[in-house]
Simulated assay, not measured.
Amino acid sequence: MYSPIPVLNELKDLYDSAGDFIADGFELHDYDDKDRFPKELDDPEFLSRVIPFAQANGSGSTYAIWRTGDETDLALSPVVVFGDEGGEQVVARDFRDFLRLLGYDGEVMVDHDSADYFREEDDDHSGSHEEFVKWLQDRGLTPAEDPDAIVAAAKEVHGERFRAWITPFYERIGWA
């Protein structure tokens, strides 16, 4: 079993069987591999609340599940992205919203103020995009047509609380 999240295990199965990328810049890696974070972020309290699971873009940003409390169903936890050059943002209220973001098939750009999904109208979809879209539809989901709306909804629900939670860790290591 890859993770304690059934739909993430199903995504891993699809990812492993797909012949190409299912979404631009997205690559699953070992579940809860804490080495995905900079060495400075080694505080056990920080590490106990974030679960990295995927590369978010071609430059090395990381997707993680943020445990806001003692959730038993991690699929209901928000998904956050940590930028490879700094910045961190809540991008999805839960795993279903996250899957819809992946369905948009655009690479995320993240900084200290925002996370944006971008794709040109004439960009080709990732090689296994159609297979992923069918996989989403089999689960009652559709790709996001407006990823900014999903990110905005996540930020509205979890943004301030995420910022308040992460700031003390950054202050301790001199990043704030």
Rank of each mutant, 00 (worst) to 15 (best):
Y2L: 10
S3L: 09
I5M: 10
I5V: 14
P6Q: 11
L8D: 08
E10K: 10
L11P: 04
L14G: 08
D16F: 07
S17N: 14
A18Q: 06
G19C: 06
F21E: 13
F21C: 06
D24S: 13
L28A: 08
L28I: 05
H29E: 10
K34G: 01
D35F: 00
D35R: 09
R36P: 03
F37S: 04
P38T: 05
K39D: 12
K39W: 13
K39C: 00
D42N: 15
D43F: 02
L47K: 06
L47S: 03
R49F: 06
V50C: 01
V50D: 00
Q55P: 04
N57S: 09
N57H: 06
S59F: 13
G60A: 03
T62M: 07
T62Q: 11
I65K: 00
T68I: 14
T72V: 11
T72N: 14
D73G: 03
S77P: 08
G86V: 10
G86F: 03
G87Q: 07
Q89Y: 02
Q89G: 03
V91W: 00
A92L: 02
R93D: 07
R96S: 14
L99T: 02
R100G: 03
Y104L: 02
D105I: 04
G106T: 07
E107V: 04
D111Y: 06
D111C: 08
S114L: 13
A115K: 08
F118E: 12
R119V: 07
E121C: 04
E121D: 15
S126T: 05
S128Q: 13
E130Q: 13
E131C: 07
W135L: 09
L136Y: 11
R139T: 08
G140N: 12
T142L: 15
D146T: 14
I150S: 05
I150W: 01
V151D: 01
A152M: 05
A152K: 14
K155W: 14
K155D: 15
G159C: 05
F162A: 09
W165Y: 10
P168K: 07
P168Y: 07
F169Y: 14
F169E: 06
Y170G: 02
W175S: 01
